[in-house]
Amino acid sequence: MRHSASFLPSRKTRIIIGTLVGLFFAIPFVATTEYTFRDVDGHSTIHWANVFDPAKQAAYRPIWTGLGNSLLLMVVTVAIVLFVLAPTMILVNLRFSKLRRIFEFFALLPISIPAVVLVVGLAPIYLVVGRSMGTGAWTLAFAYGILVMPYAFRPIQAAIDSINMSTLSEAARSLGASWPKTVLRVLAPNLRQGLLYASLISVAVVLGEFTIASLLNRQNLQTALLVVSRQDPYVSVIFSLLALLLCFLLLVVIGRAGNVGSHKKGRRK
C-alpha cells in the first residue's frame, strides 16, 4: 500500500481536477436556482412563495402523490437489491461459480436496453401484474429491480471479490453457524460497503426514473413534475431542486447509517 502513494496526483492537480468537476456539477445547479428567482422584471421570491401558498396546493397535489410513490418504490427496490440480488450473487459466487459469467451477463444486460424498449416487453407483463397484484404504483418496483440491477451488481461484485468469501463462510460453518447465520453475521457485514453503494445508486436511479412510470401510466416523482411543469414551469423547477436536495439528504443519511459500524473499527486503529 505504501508505495501506491507515489501514484497519487499532486495536491495542485487534485485541486484543479476538483474545481473542474465541481464547476461541471455546480453550473447547472446554480443556473436552475437562479431561474426559480426570475420574474417579469428582475428577480423575486414570488415563485417560492407560490409553493407554500395554501390556495395553490390543489395544483401541486400530484407532486406529493408522486413523491410518496417514489419513496415507496425506493424502499421496495432497495429491498429487492438487498434481499434478492445480493443473496443470489452470494449463492452464485459460492456454490455455482460456473454460472458467474452468465449471471453477470444477464445482470448487466438491462443497461444496454433503452427503457422505452424495456417497456414494450414490460407492458403485457404488467397487464398480468395489474390483474393479480393491483395497479398500485409500488408494482413498478419489479421493473425497477431489473433497471437498477446493472448498477447494483458492480459494487456488490467488487465487495465479493475483495473478501475471501469461501474461506469465511467455511470458517463460520465449521464453528456451527447455519447458512442464514453465516450470511447475516459474517458475509453481510464484510460486504457492507458494496451493499451500501448498491443501495445508494438504486435510490438515485429510482428517484430519477421517468420513462417506465410514464409509459406504464404510473405516477412517480418525475411524471408528477412533468404534469405540474405544464401549469407552472417555475414551481416544477423548484420541486426538481427540492427533489435533488431530498435525494442528496437521503444519500447522506443512508451513507451515515451504513458507516456506523465502521466507526468503532476506525477509532481503534
Binding site: N164, E170, L175, V186
Partner: peptide
Amino acid sequence: VNRRDIGMVFQSYSLF
C-alpha cells in the same frame, strides 16, 4: 458441517 462439532483451522487467514 455446522452440526458435526469440529474445529478447523484453514490455510488462508480465516478470521472474520
